[in-house]
């Protein structure tokens, strides 16, 4: 199509805007990577005296011989990293299980379905600081001990579960329930249908939910600051460290986390694309031209939120 002058102008403006957004999004990671090799300070660019010492410090926080800069804070990130990993793993698995169960329930019509849909999202839409404060006060009232395994885990599940719930609803609304009916006609009972048909077909959604749960929990700070008691997750440790002094060790840590996240998400996206192709064919063949639906079956009319 012939572009008008306005469109040509937009092509330039839009291109620049897009490029700027990408720069603003990725420059920090680049800078962080560079500064993680700085030996002393991060406040000066370009970094002088490059070395791997920050990474050494990160992994050997007890080796005091490494910390030679006067006034340098001795921060041990290893404990918080382990705790955050454990919390994120537990959160993602439990939140995904609960979200999947709830989303499956929402395929049926039951009383209170409309209101409960909003209730299910409450943990996500309420500003995090409010839930952090509220849950802390609630725990005090009912004498629930604060800590990552108790209040921390509950808060994190309440926070990440709605994301998984939404992911599952989106998938289930596009899920052809007649394949479940076909399975039951072939002799499969409810549990077998779930195990051999529903769950495998929902695998990409399960992984998406796990990913949401893991990354959102691993990064959580709005709620965590008030409910973890004496336990320290990584974000809490990081924000604590920034109030003292930002050292290159923090950037070494940040670089590794960013690298880890990118690899994790890229792997997921590759898997997702493979699954999508497995079910729906290669992207080139634009299949799925549903023939006219003369008489939609009740299952096809299906549950819509």
């Amino acid at each position: 199509m012939q572009l008008s002058s306005g469109q040509r102008a937009f092509r330039i403006i839009g291109g620049i805007a897009f490029a700027l957004i990408l720069i603003v999004l990725y420059a920090p990671f680049l800078i962080m990577g560079m500064l993680s090799f700085a030996e002393r300070t991060t406040a000066v660019f370009p970094p002088k005296d490059l070395s791997f010492i920050s990474y050494q410090k990160l992994f050997n926080p007890d080796d005091f011989s490494l910390f030679r800069i006067p006034g340098e804070p001795l921060v041990n990130y290893l404990g918080p990293i382990k705790l955050s990993l454990a919390l994120a793993l537990l959160t993602s698995v439990l939140a995904t299980a609960l979200a999947l169960m709830a989303a499956l329930a929402f395929r049926e019509r039951f009383k209170g379905r409309g209101v409960l849909f909003y209730v299910m999202l409450l943990g996500m839409v309420t500003p995090g600081i409010i839930l952090g404060l509220g849950f802390r006060l609630f725990a005090d009232q009912v004498a629930l001990p604060t800590g990552w395994m108790t209040t921390g885990l509950l808060t994190h599940i309440a926070w990440t579960m709605p994301f998984g719930f939404i992911v599952f609803l989106i998938f289930l609304n596009r899920f052809d329930r007649t394949i479940e009916e076909a399975a039951s006609m072939l002799g499969a009972n409810t549990w077998t249908v779930f195990r051999t048909v529903t769950l495998p077909v929902l695998a990409p959604a399960v992984l998406a939910s796990l990913l949401f749960g893991f990354t959102l929990s691993f990064d959580e700070i709005q709620r965590s600051s008030l409910v973890l008691g004496s336990d320290q997750t990584l974000p809490i440790a990081v924000i604590g460290a920034t109030t003292v002094r930002i050292t290159p060790v923090l950037y070494a840590l940040g670089s590794l986390i960013a690298l880890f996240s990118f690899v994790l998400v890229a792997t997921y996206l590759l898997f997702f694309e493979r699954e999508r192709q497995r079910f729906y064919g290669a992207p080139t063949e634009d299949a799925d031209s549903d023939a006219d639906d003369n008489e939609p079956t009740p299952a096809r009319r299906g549950a819509r939120a």
Binding site: L25, Y26, F29, F218, D219, I239, G254, F262, V265
Partner: peptide, 8 residues
């Protein structure tokens, strides 16, 4: 970037 630490 959504999937990486916001604090970082």
């Amino acid at each position: 970037p959504f999937w990486t630490s916001y604090l970082i």
